[in-house]
């Protein structure tokens, strides 16, 4: 359904990404979709206004290998996905330790379909930003 979409696995993700870069593909962004028992992690690339996407089906609980070693631009969005979906991303070029978008005391993984209940209620008077 998605324009130019190709399925990849965790094993060949990095090689697939690496093989696209010399062809002149520009990294656009990543999208993460909560499917219930798995995530869809989409890597969007663009070449001459044409979008091409790699789709990685990631079962919940598995770690996501970072592509930021190959495409530095991915580091921000990978940190965002880590914050908002609670996916552990390995090998990040810059790791914000879950504080890229969220602050202390913010809900964990708020973009999941069923976010986990807040573990420790924020102390009275604690800053509630996030």
């Amino acid at each position: 359904m998605l324009q130019n979409c190709k399925d990849v696995t965790r094993e060949n993700l990095l090689t697939e990404v690496a093989s696209r870069l010399p062809l002149g593909y520009r990294f656009v962004t990543m999208t993460c979709v909560d499917l219930g028992d798995a995530f869809d992690v989409l890597y969007h690339f663009d070449k001459n206004y044409e979008l091409s996407t790699l789709r990685l089906r990631l079962p919940k609980g598995e770690t996501l290998p970072s592509v930021s070693g190959l495409v530095f631009a991915a580091v921000l969005v990978e940190n965002e996905i880590k914050d908002l979906f609670g996916i552990a991303v390995t090998g990040l070029a810059i790791d914000y330790q879950g504080h890229f978008i969220l602050a202390d005391g913010a809900p964990t993984a708020p973009l999941l379909k069923n976010p986990p209940p807040p573990t420790a209620p924020a102390a009275e008077g604690a800053p509630k930003n996030g």
């Binding site: 921000l76 914000y96 504080h99 890229f100 978008i101 969220l102 602050a103 708020p110 973009l111 930003n129 996030g130």
Partner: peptide
């Protein structure tokens, strides 16, 4: 850089 001061959860 670090951001996150005005995250509003709009996508949710």
């Amino acid at each position: 850089p670090s951001i996150g001061y005005i995250h509003r959860g709009l996508e949710k």
